[in-house]
Computed example of a mutant assay.
Amino acid sequence: MKMSEESAKISRATLSDVCRHTGLSTATVSRVINQTGNVKAATVKKVMDAIAQLGYVPNHAARALAGQRNKMIGVVFPEISTGFWAEILKGLDAEADDHQYHILTAFSHGGQDERELALRLLGEGRIDALVVMNLRLGKDFMQQAGRFNIPVILIDRPIAGLETASVTLDNVTGACQAMTHLYEHGYEQVVILAGDLETYDARQRLMGCKKAAKAAKVAWDDRLVVASSFTEEGGSRAIDTWFKQSVKPPRAIFCFNDNIAIGAMNALEKRGFAVPDDVAVIGFDDIDSARHLKLTTVHVPVLEMGRAAANAAIQVISNQAFNKQQVLPTQLVLRRSCGCLVEAEQKVCAG
């Protein structure tokens, strides 16, 4: 079996090459590779950059270069703060198990750590594919990752111009459905709690909001978009930000995830405003607590995302044809927080 040119290039790089490139001792470089001892973050970055540039693969990865599989898929998560990621992981693991693969999971701690962690997993050669989830890793990272000859699967954020497999959501349609529903309730002024607008999801959902406004012939107003973070604390802060510019609460709010919505509802309640009597609220994701809180939200097929990502990884590993970009559907789920069930309850009482 012939190695590819890329594999041959990788195999020629040695530990000594990495040491010469970085000007560091063999002991220091080995500590970085084996993750032993205390090594400064700057030194770790220097070594990992050199490994990526030279295409060095540690000795324990030799069997991967020889074409043997580890039956292991690596997964890098951005955080562990919500159950959203746990559900995706559950889907990943279920699909992997169906094909006799295991999952190796790691959590990053910020932007630079994401890159170093992902490159380290690729460089160790212990995985057959890497799944990265909504990380801020761009085309330059993918070019570095390509040196290791290990497929990378993207969840939640495709990168244009690459042949990499990705699994994403139909964020535009989901957000458009939510905003359209609020407009149909008669709320022409809808405040949007957008989370982090630098993320792919938030940008896509904002596109959906603008699409709905245009279809409803509602003038778009950037002042109604409040950015924060995708957490309950972010939702609470966003409400505080709104009340710094207005004495009245918004009549309707669309939140870019359910955690923001829960934080916003708690903040509104502390200020004496009831949902949905005073303020209608819609979220996005349909997490477990959304059902308990009767939160109208956009359902996301989370388990299916995990399964689709694992399946794509296994197809690439096995050199099978794969769908380069899978877009999973989203669907608005009506509950009490937008006022729909309240109207139904009132009709029942009146009848």
Rank of each mutant, 00 (worst) to 15 (best):
D113M: 08
H292I: 15
I103W: 03
K324D: 05
F77L: 10
A312L: 04
I155V: 14
K90F: 15
D140I: 06
G235V: 02
T296Y: 00
Q35G: 10
K324L: 08
E233N: 09
N38D: 10
V281M: 02
Q204S: 13
I80R: 10
V342N: 08
A94C: 06
L224W: 15
N38V: 12
F77Y: 10
V281Y: 02
V190T: 04
D49A: 13
R63E: 15
R20I: 04
F148E: 11
I127H: 07
G306P: 03
V39C: 04
M1Y: 08
G138R: 06
L169S: 14
R31D: 06
S4V: 01
R271H: 02
L169A: 10
K45N: 08
L104G: 08
H299Q: 15
R63Q: 15
Q331K: 10
R12Q: 14
P158Q: 14
V327K: 15
T296E: 03
K347A: 13
E233A: 13
L135Y: 00
G195H: 01
I192S: 08
L89M: 11
I153M: 03
C340G: 00
L206W: 03
I153Y: 00
K217Y: 12
T330M: 01
L65P: 01
D278N: 12
A313W: 00
Q143F: 12
I317R: 00
F141C: 15
